[in-house]
Amino acid sequence: MKLIVKLKRFLLRLLGLLVVVALAAAGGFAWWAHQPLTLATSPVEVVIKPNSSVVSVGRQVQRGGVPIDGRLFVALARVTGQATSLKAGGYQFESGVTPLDVLDKLARGEVTHYVVTVIEGWEFRKMRAAVDANPALKHDTAGMSDADLMKAIGAEETSPEGLFFPDTYLFARGSSDVELYRHAYRAMQKRLNDAWNARSPDLPYKTPYEALVMASIVEKETGQAAERPMIAAVFVNRLRKNMMLQTDPTVIYGVGEKFDGNLRKRDLQTDTPYNTYTRAGLPPTPIALPGLASLAAATAPAPSDALYFVARGDGSSHFSTSLPEHNRAVDKYQRGK
């Protein structure tokens, strides 16, 4: 009986201790949520990308220059029921803001700028659809052909494919979409010129535009980011040897919107300007919007003699320098032999 009494007293003390600890933790959490933050520079502009999780939002706020604790921020968002209410856009924060202020501002969507995110590997038509669907923009390009759009932004090219840099762009409500396109076009011109000026010697390109075409192929062919320079090396080596590039993404681009996700033998045999199984050299235009890493790979490919690659099935590729080696790799990874 005495043992039971002692056990009850112990449990009551333990419970009391846990209550004290819980209250202290809750008090500390509440203190943190209302604690003014000192920013290294004030104000700072923080960009929250569309479709970001609450964890990703916490990281973006930290990277933007607001010194919050990411785990506590996520906990605060969940405790207040705002974890699924955080909105994309550009936000401005000043010194003295509290973590709770930051959260409330994100949940209310008090943006100073709106955003459009253009994804690496998109075709231009997807970028245009995303821009057209943004209600905060003034749609001055509505009804324009692609060629008219290029003329409106002052570009010399008539085909827009590949010429807009994939990134997240900020703009004020009511801004013209012409300005957004012009900004993205100039961003690509700068990055392409930088990559071209730093290019490896003896590349089989005559112009930066040809390097851009190659970068778009690399963008669409790469399964793992680290393999971009090797993918580029294969295609550069093929160009040097006057071999067909034989890359499926160019064929798919040539099929266009009729492509249903299944590349058939007849597609590979049907000649189009983009069928690199029937036509030698690079296609006439890029096939997608390449990112910075693909531009770098196309202008500085890996030092390799590889002429072939095949997907292993895990996102990586096996590279081969000869056709017999390649055929063995195809048997192993594609045919299961």
Rank of each mutant, 00 (worst) to 15 (best):
H34I: 03
K206T: 15
A83Y: 11
Y333K: 02
A75Q: 14
Y209R: 01
A184D: 14
P99E: 15
M150P: 00
D202S: 10
P99K: 05
L72H: 07
D271M: 01
T158F: 00
M144H: 02
A22L: 13
T141I: 13
G89D: 04
N262R: 03
A155L: 02
R125K: 15
V236E: 06
A298T: 06
L180F: 13
V61E: 00
L292Y: 03
S56Y: 00
Y274K: 07
A300L: 08
S316Y: 01
T168M: 07
A172G: 15
S317M: 11
G254I: 05
Y114D: 15
R279A: 11
K6Q: 14
T117N: 13
V97P: 06
F319L: 03
L137C: 13
Q246T: 02
L103H: 08
K151V: 12
E110S: 15
I153C: 10
R228K: 14
N193F: 13
I48R: 06
A33V: 05
H139C: 04
A152D: 03
S200F: 00
G64E: 00
D271W: 12
R312G: 09
L37A: 09
G254K: 11
T207A: 02
R78P: 03
N134T: 05
E156I: 11
L203D: 00
P43W: 14
N327A: 08
A40N: 09
A77I: 01
L289W: 09
A198Q: 04
Q35A: 13
A142R: 15
Q92I: 15
P301A: 12
I119M: 02
L203K: 02
P324R: 00
P303E: 09
S316D: 06
T222Q: 09
T84W: 05
P201C: 11
A280V: 09
G313W: 13
W122V: 08
M243A: 07
V5S: 14
V44R: 08
A215H: 03
A88H: 01
M188F: 04
D194E: 11
P135K: 13
Y181N: 08
G315I: 00
A142Q: 15
E120Q: 11
P43C: 04
I4M: 13
A300G: 06
E325K: 09
L203P: 07
E210M: 01
S320A: 10
A107K: 06
G313L: 10
F164I: 12
Q60E: 12
D260N: 06
